[in-house]
Design a binder for these strands. Structure first.
Lengths: 344, 344
DNA sequence: TTGAAAGCGATACCAC
DNA sequence: GTGGTATCGCTTTCAA
């Protein structure tokens, strides 16, 4: 328990004015003489006055704070998104609580309840999947960025890519480069499947459109018990050990792609020639790999921008123009699909 | 502004009891009949009651919340540390605010003031460097984990490695493997130099002990304006272009090491044989590189554990046994120093 | 321009 | 076992 700190009341006493005046001065509101302002400001500074946020938000029934809920801040894709959302919110005068759920549904629910109790003005889910029904008598605006699931709140906006199309384009890229047998590598918690399912749907639909028969052995799924990277490595290693043949891999995530590439290299397979690989996210993982990994730029900056715009408009009490915002994506080919023709 | 939510007063009305009783029931305090408990619990549930945290902390002058201040959550080394500290605190009943300063001193100060206003019970600085004097009339416990600098608070504990020794050991590792001309690569904001300086001191001291004359051309320093990774690449590229010769690189950070390795590879240099490289952090970056990067395991789990222990003890009002806790470190040799003898 | 006082929601002391 | 009420620090309305 911190020692009782200086309050507006103490300042008022020392300055010989009322708390109302001190409050006005400190918030540049109402009216007061220049003289009073100087006096109050000086005393506040001298006393090391720090406003009590709890009192303020209790009184104002608003915290100017938004919670960002993400499954894994240690994943570059999410943390990048989190940081840009945070920056935009800060610029608009909102503070952010960054919450890490570790893909744990219980933790997610617990967090949301805690956050509602903390009177956050809005919620932003970033990445992952959740389907929760919060039985709370609160109604705050919610934005979902690259997040599948709903919060149960009345005002929700969804921002994200067209995931089936994204999966489709990834698959197409590999076939266009001449692949004949393309595997699908995915790593995710069973409870958190929806997003991956959407992209997988794109893979399936591409096969179907082109009359390619699905080989279930080529659908590699990991349980996501450890880092997706290591798991993907294991997945591919197991697959190779079983003798399955493939010449292309659609990896649902750059970390997964990196694991796939590492495993293939370890088996002496020339990635980009013998087997082509495409990841998804255009995160740091695809750029630092060698060979550099082909991936999909998902325009996260725009996601963040559109998501924050929608949230701010709801916070202003407006209803957003769109409740489902689709952000474009772009295949970025690098060495793992272009092979030797990719410049170093 | 969220619609006014259900308060303890509403529950009291509906249950036909007083607010005091409702409070008791909801907090399992004081005494009440089983019957009242059931009634109150049911009504609270039905009404979707969520406690108002602001009111609670205003009254209790404690938030059961700690702020974690870190320069860059998108850096795997820091985010790992952040997540383990958060987990330990959660287990002890404390929530965490995760704050990202982007190495910006102004932001850091602004954050701390905001956090003090939010009545956090404690502060944990994780990584980076700062030297701030908060002119606030508050005194809360502070822990610095791998962080150089002081907060100006009365009760502070420092947890971290022996950085000069760490730099010394990194340098030694390279010379022991036969290197003759070892460069030092560092990338950091000029204002945030101290931590890197400590490790650099280890590099200098090793040279001195062994009568090796320092070649200033071999001290590569980047300004840290963009991702340290890219900057390190540029640094090495520039250095090579200028014709400087070296056969070893001490990189202050795994990201830096990765950039160095990438740049060397791009120049057709065999890393691990022609030039040996050692990084620091044992983060994901060193493990996913190929060749795998030799690095230093800094025992972050223990840092987190000891740091949290110290904080909790201070929060209990005890004074910590030690105010400066040194955590051991361990050189982990991989392909970039062992060369071909390192198993794939 | 300034101040008195009500009230935000929860807790805890002290009566009953 | 239960309830009345002061209190935490701040904002805001209304009156002076």
């Amino acid at each position: 328990m911190a020692k009782r700190s200086v309050s507006i009341y103490d300042i008022a006493q020392l300055a010989g004015v009322s708390t109302a005046t001190v409050s006005n001065v400190l918030n540049n509101k109402g009216s007061y003489s220049q003289k009073t302002k100087e006096l109050v400001d000086r005393i506040a500074r001298e006393q090391g006055y720090v406003a009590n946020f709890a009192a303020k938000s209790l009184r104002e029934a608003s915290t100017k704070t938004v919670a960002l809920i993400t499954p894994d801040v240690s994943n570059d894709f999410f943390s990048t998104l989190v940081l840009s959302v945070e920056g935009l919110l800060r610029a608009a005068g909102y503070a952010s609580y960054i919450c890490n759920t570790a893909n744990d549904p219980e933790r997610e629910t617990a967090y949301v309840i805690d956050l509602l109790s903390k009177q956050v003005d809005g919620l932003v889910f970033i990445g992952g999947t959740a389907r929760m029904t919060i039985e709370a008598n609160v109604d705050i605006p919610v934005v979902h960025i690259d997040h599948t699931g709903t919060s149960g709140m009345a005002r929700e906006v969804f921002v994200g890519n067209d995931l089936p199309l994204l999966g489709h384009d990834m698959t197409k890229t590999l076939f266009d480069r001449g692949c004949k047998r393309v595997a699908l590598a995915s790593v995710s918690a069973s409870l958190y499947r929806t997003a991956e399912h959407d992209q997988a749907a794109g893979y399936y639909s591409y096969l179907q459109e082109h009359g390619i028969v699905l080989d279930k052995n080529l659908v590699l799924e990991g349980p996501h018990k450890q880092t997706s990277l290591l798991e993907a490595e294991q997945l591919v290693t197991d697959c190779l050990a079983c003798g399955f043949q493939f010449d292309g891999v659609v990896a649902l995530g750059d970390r997964v792609a990196l694991g796939v590439v590492n495993a293939l290299k370890a088996h002496g397979i020339d990635v980009g020639t013998d087997v082509r690989v495409i990841g998804m996210d255009d995160s740091i993982y695809s750029r630092i790999s060698s060979p550099a990994i082909s991936t999909v730029n998902r325009h996260t900056d725009e996601m963040a921008k559109r998501g924050v715009e929608a949230l701010l408009s709801m916070l202003r009490g407006e209803s957003p123009a769109e409740t489902r915002i689709i952000i474009g994506h772009e295949v970025v080919e690098r060495a793992t699909t272009l092979g030797a023709s990719y410049p170093i």
